[in-house]
Design a protein around this nucleic acid. Structure first.
Lengths: 220, 220
DNA sequence: TCAACTCTGTGAACTTCTTCACAATCGGGT
DNA sequence: ACCCGATTGTGAAGAAGTTCACAGAGTTGA
């Protein structure tokens, strides 16, 4: 009775994509039905958490039975709009950008990289996999046709803010930002940040004084 | 008086790396002193949040004055152990692995990629930038010498769990995981996950029925 | 038909994180 | 020497997220 009205906690949304991945595996294994208790056992995510996450979007299971894997999978995909093509612009044809174009996970989830931009004239015109690298200056013009609403920012930090503004100007309202800085964008634009260094720093912090395990190994 | 005893909230740790990045910028601009109010103005992070985050680790500022940029920068780097070399193993010499080896941000923060492994015999022996790609089977043997405690997992999903176990067996106790699955590891091991698809899915969800901005543009 | 069992959906309790608000401190000006 | 404006560090309030615990719905078997 909660269904999708009020607003959904961000952690719930983040977990939804995990559930989807997990359900796709179960489907592959021909599992038809799953209970929240089994989800907890197999993924480590608390069963009540799983149920409550789903409850934000309606009722998905049958008491006494559990959840139909195929149905749940497809309903989550629908919630996340992963059941329709999403056109995505990529800015930055460096190492990272190149890796993203080649990453098969995007296509699998219907994210379609429709154009790659760079401002480096030695790259413009070349191909990155099957996409021609376009002049960053043509961003707005090109997206007037493509009408992508998602953008990936894989440029150096100093360029990121101005490129973000270019993306917004070109009609993009969701940005995945790989540059290590906080982007300032208009309120209607949603930004998600991915920072390798931040993640490594958190790991580094946890490398406390615990002795490495090596010494404990005693092997024949 | 809170200093570093109790345990630190995860969101605080995540923000610490951002503060560091920001402080390095300020240092470059020759800013000597900064107040929490200025931090809020420039980064959007609430001033009280900034102060409380720091308070978990001691006292860093002077009332009526603010924080000394250089000192704060170096103390945060110390907290995160970014003031000393951290040796890191990379597993997976694909597109993503390759991009990571070439990513300058790692070296800048003293993360030192000391070895790259892959199980693909057509890759083993080749060079990725300046590092030779080693046989994944030699992971433990090699790390007995290198003694890295951090590992980056940039392998396909199906291989990730077993490679993670290999890393742990080789003495690694911090893992940065790029494969879209929940790794099962012993309790002393810390894992951070980076999932492009998850991030894009969250963005995709937010692409609600708002009309794209294109139509609103009325240009000469 | 009914009893025994399973499992969902959710209010309520609990835990964690964020923000407020203010006493305590500092530095500068006179 | 003292006052005044600025700014910190932190208890306490508030908001957000997680987990508990149970009523109620469904299923199975006799």
């Amino acid at each position: 009775m909660n269904a999708s009205n009020g607003k959904v906690p961000m952690p719930t949304l983040e977990r939804l994509a995990n559930y989807l991945r997990y359900l796709l595996d179960l489907e592959q294994e021909r599992v038809e039905t799953i209970s929240s208790a089994e989800v907890e056992q197999q993924t480590g995510i608390n069963a009540a958490q799983f149920r409550k996450d789903l409850s934000y979007f309606g009722e998905f299971g049958k008491p006494g039975v559990g959840y139909n894997v195929a149905e749940l999978q497809s309903r989550i995909a629908h919630i996340l709009k992963l059941d329709q093509e999403q056109r995505v612009l990529l800015v930055g044809a460096g190492n990272l950008g190149s890796a993203l174009v080649g990453y098969p996970g995007l296509k699998e989830h219907r994210f379609n990289l429709v154009a790659v931009f760079d401002n480096n004239y030695s790259k413009i015109g070349r191909k990155l996999w099957d996409l021609e690298i376009l002049d960053l200056g043509r961003l707005k013009e090109v997206n007037a046709v493509l009408r992508a609403r998602m953008g990936i920012l894989a440029v150096p930090r100093v360029a990121a803010q101005s490129v973000a503004e270019g993306l917004v100007d070109a009609g993009v309202d969701s940005i995945l930002n790989f540059a290590p800085l906080i982007l300032r964008v208009p309120p209607h634009v949603v930004v998600r940040n991915v920072s390798f260094v931040q993640e490594l720093a958190v790991l580094s912090y946890h490398l406390s004084s615990e002795p490495p395990q090596h010494a404990l190994d005693a092997k024949g």
